[in-house]
Design a binder for these strands. Sequence first.
DNA 1: GCCAACGTTGGC
DNA 2: GCCAACGTTGGC
Length: 137
Amino acid sequence: MNYWLVKSEPFVFSYDDLVRDGVTRWDGVRNYQARNNLRAMKEGDLCLFYHSNEGLAVVGIAKVSKEYYPDPTAEKGDWSVVELQPYKAVQEPLTLATIKQHPMLDQLGLVRNPRLSVMPVSSDEFFIILDLCKTTI
DNA sequence: GCCAACGTTGGC
DNA sequence: GCCAACGTTGGC
């Protein structure tokens, strides 16, 4: 089991939208590092769902329901998508400000490379974050 | 292969 | 709205 963090602008696609839709195709990724992370996801892996631009917080957990396949929205280039489904909303959203204050989370990709939209999270980091969200899985 | 210019992301 | 960081593009 691997753990990940995906970012979405909530006014484009929020965690509530994921709950509403039940499953979504995570398309439109046009960054090689992010794409390679999508390709490393296995069915059943869990993703922290982070709201960027607005909210600036981890708000839920998504599960990888389908492993990568070619992005149908890509007109050219070698891009991939996965499918995600809602797993669990967190009890308390965890804001970026709080994440930055936590000494155990200073290696988190979200802090070290704020522009990457799909990134791996260590299991230690994942469970620290769940704990800060007062959430169990 | 280098590097300048440009575009995008995303926090503040 | 601004700006820093990063990635991409394209000329040489």
